[in-house]
Design a protein around this nucleic acid. Structure first.
Lengths: 202, 202, 202, 202
DNA sequence: CGATAAACGAGACGGTACGTCTGGTCTTGTG
DNA sequence: CACAAGACCAGACGTACCGTCTCGTTTATCG
């Protein structure tokens, strides 16, 4: 047995990112990115790519996760609310740039291929989610998060608006958005709760 | 001047929906749907399609909105909270079926073409949003919704999780989800507020 | 009855010639000339063209003959040999320019459409041919052309090489060619005849 | 390296000839022959054709020359005059059939594309021409052809009328035509020469 | 250390669909 | 009622990639 060429693998992933314009201005979309272009740029034959990846999306997600992804870790050395605010701000900030476009396009691809969705979960989204869910469980323990709703649902409430704005626009992905989102999620939209909490924070 | 053939237009839109499998089991994805297939099925020449629509997504969105869309109206004859619950339940229910797949794929296409995103806003998403924002304004007037956050942001908080689940899965789109979502949005995830409200509702 | 619009007819024929680049440098080939382009340039609708001409070639030949063709008349006030030399020189000269390309392309079109060939005969080639045949009959009467071969065949011998060079190249269409051609046609390629005649001409 | 598939090449050329109706009655013209039709009939993809040939004419000329062309060789074991007569008769005979139509259409295509003209010269016409020119040089050596005119010009005189009749009609391409043509070319149209030679041949 | 089996580059192949173009027909007002 | 305007069907064009498939040619263990 000889085994896979690490050299080729690297070249392919690097080329993919370059073609997608990560870190630069230009760049194609995932849709227009072609396996042939990757192969040519990587100095690799098409068969080598098809041997190790199932489709374009698999290559892209691999490139994205392995080579590039800036992490947005969840701190566990600060109180729940601060950790949440910082995390949401970090996520929103990351998505405001090129990463956002890429993640959006990955989600787009995932609409057409369950395997891509699966990979997206396994290698990217799953990690984030469980970090946040852990944080939420900590919040429950700290007594600042309600315990009658499962953490996954709560994570949804926080991430949902971020992805909605990422995918459909309708406003900027900036710190103001992050702040307002966390506040709203914490207190709810109902008038009574906010009326109660607001003085407590000022 | 002679003008556009309404007959052709109808045939094209109908064929598009049929090919997408709306109302039936089979069906392609938008990605695999081809202009050539639409033309063939509609008994129309390709140029006729290209004459009136810019790209595939434009045809699909036109077909979707014009011919098909089930409305999920927002009632104004019941109290705010009931109207919100019913609307969210209706939306969630609609997205659980074929419509959901189509909307998801439209959003996917919108990631690659600003014009498609625009159309999505103009002809579909915008309507929903403004209906909900009006509802929220009513809630503010009724004194049950906080007035310190713009309605758009609040709409985001409600719709975000729905679209997140539609696009990334992670749980069913069912009545339970709808109920839990509305409750969470109203009260927030913070423990104090929920502790206060909960007794009041039981 | 209102009858055909002479104005349109003129505009169509003029436009055809312009588009073919007659009298100018640029110009398309007949093959690439499109009815639509003619219609647009003439400010006329396509149907008007199709109403009066069967196809593109018919328009072109009409334009060519009616509006443009420089005549290369056969003189009858000079001896046979001189008249022949002058005519051949004129023809060769005409074909060396834009006319040549057009005639060549008309012949090309005629290979695909018998009607075009017919028109080419009726309106262009037939006239030339019969003029030359008349000249040859005069030569026979003058006693300088053999009488045992039909004039058409002799015309062939003279015109054939001209068209061959026009269509397939292989040398310039210039005065030298014309002179040599006439001489060769008159005397033949056989050595004895030329040996006899040559001294007589020097 | 794997290299070109001879199988496909054969299939393409054969199909081209079949579609052109070579050897059969029906058949299209080169103009109406489409690359798509060739591909379909050959069980080959369009890209394979475009990979190896520049355009339709290139395929046709390749098919014609490689697979089909009946040779009309020039004998060198008989006296000049006999060899010439036989060759002209063979050419005329060949052109009277389907080959003639094809050659005529190739010449038509050559009017629109210099590359086609070049190929026509390189692979078909050039061969014939040089064979005849060689024959003429032999005639000069044998002392039966005049030496004061270049062989190419003489070849023109012989071939010109054949192609003229092929392209523009005006009479049959038969043995009578061939015989008369050679006689005329040899002796010229002038009366004195023919008067001299005629007795010598009877 | 030399055999051997994999991974590799190169790239041809059958396909599908693209978006553009032209041809020729048909329809509907307008002058 | 001839015309302009131009929509329409039909279908070929040449291009771009797809994913599969030979081919030799490295190359790195393992017998």
């Amino acid at each position: 047995m000889v085994g896979r060429s690490e050299e080729s693998r690297q070249a392919i992933l690097k080329s993919t990112l370059k073609l997608l314009g990560v870190g630069a201005r230009g760049g194609t979309t995932i849709q227009k990115l072609s396996i042939e272009a990757i192969a040519k740029r990587a100095g690799v034959s098409k068969s080598t790519i098809y041997r190790w990846w199932d489709n374009k999306a698999a290559v892209v997600i691999d490139a994205f996760v392995t080579e590039y992804l800036t992490h947005t870790p969840v701190r566990d050395d600060v109180p729940f609310e601060q950790a949440l605010r910082e995390h949401v701000a970090a996520v929103v900030h990351q998505y405001a740039g090129v990463d956002g476009r890429l993640v959006a396009q990955l989600i787009a691809e995932a609409q057409y291929d369950p395997a891509t969705l699966q990979e997206f979960h396994n290698r990217f989204w799953g990690g984030r989610r469980s970090a946040v869910e852990a944080l939420i469980r900590r919040g429950v323990e700290e007594g600042v998060v309600r315990s009658d709703v499962e953490p996954g649902m709560i994570a949804n409430l926080v991430y949902g608006p971020v992805y909605l704005r990422l995918l459909l626009g309708g406003g900027p992905l900036d710190d103001g958005f992050a702040t307002e989102l966390v506040e709203l999620a914490l207190d709810g939209i109902g008038v009574r709760s906010s009326a109660l909490r607001e003085p407590a924070r000022r």
